[in-house]
Design a protein around this nucleic acid. Structure first.
Lengths: 173, 173
DNA sequence: CGATAATTGTTATGGATCATATCAAATATC
DNA sequence: GATATTTGATATGATCCATAACAATTATCG
């Protein structure tokens, strides 16, 4: 967390090598220099992602939804009748790891597995009434508390540009 | 990983609800609709971050460096003489988890722990000669193969704008 | 048709990452 | 000098990510 605090005042020299500089006597904590790190795409991307997830969790804390769970609900709502493999793979989740995630949503009566009639191997996924209601509330919370935060921070135009560039990276990098 | 691959060999169908429609006869794979998911900041951020880390690993594969290890080397080079707690905390790494990371770098003779003379509790961190050489090569690989990829994809101006917005999110969200 | 291959959901499992509690040694504080 | 704090370290658990393997079902094709 305490990362890019952007070096406030480096009045003194940073590295003291091995010979002494009494910190307690001098007082200044002396922030580190990030240097080229702040220009590294991966570094800044990861930090931003952590902050965004953290904020997301706070915003929907009342509904007890993680970003992954929210994305599953969104995708199932938009594509009702798909099976586990389809939903999981489009989210980049491996099938084995998707089982526990679904178990959780199903145990909370947000989502249901239904045996397909034309392929009795697969489980068709649908949202329950409660799942739809929770998702609706989640969308509202995310829109008003989470995504709106971006507009305040970047402005509408920049926000759209950012999403566009990130999508491009996600798809074409 | 296999997310936005736009459904290659999935011989499935879209929403068939519970009643059957034979897919094998029809043919079309019919990709899922991402819907609002593609507008979710967290979703697209995470996907982009995974792609970028993946690409980073490929680019510096010859040096066997992870993004985290690279960031440690960069920060120690820029701030020689700092101790483990300082380096770890500015990277957002908890002290206990930083130990194994450092053990690795030290075992490969890229970094060294030196007992501080004025505080014999702390370990001063410095890069070894080999560490400096490896970091120099890593920087070159990252600049020419990794970061340059962004310019090709977004252009110089957009790349800078992207980094600026991500930094803002990382610091102010 | 029937033997074989492939798919679906699942379990088991291991690795990597992340967080907390705790400890000994050294230092700071009062 | 007694107590508290800091530093690096260990142990441990949670969570996430990836692979192998399995039973049930379906597809393939000889």
């Amino acid at each position: 967390m305490t990362v890019s605090k952007t070096a406030e005042k480096s009045s003194e020299k940073p590295g003291d090598g091995a010979k002494g500089r009494k910190d307690a006597a001098e007082g200044l904590p002396e922030a580190l220099q990030l240097g080229e790190l702040s220009e590294q795409l991966g570094y800044v991307l990861k930090r931003a992602q952590l902050k965004v997830f953290e904020n997301f969790l706070r915003c929907v804390a009342s509904l007890q939804l993680t970003p992954a769970q929210f994305s599953v609900l969104l995708l199932v709502e938009k594509n009702p009748g798909r099976n586990q493999t389809e939903i999981a793979s489009t989210l980049g989740i491996l099938r084995p790891n998707f089982v526990a995630l679904l178990d959780n949503l199903e145990s909370r009566d947000l989502c249901a597995r239904i045996r397909s009639t034309n392929d009795r191997r697969s489980h068709i996924l649908v949202l329950t009434d409660k799942g739809k209601a929770v998702l609706t509330r989640a969308k509202k919370l995310v829109a008003t508390k989470h995504e709106s935060r971006l507009n305040e921070l970047l402005g509408q135009a920049n926000r759209e540009a950012l999403l566009g560039m990130l999508s491009k990276i996600a798809n074409e990098f």
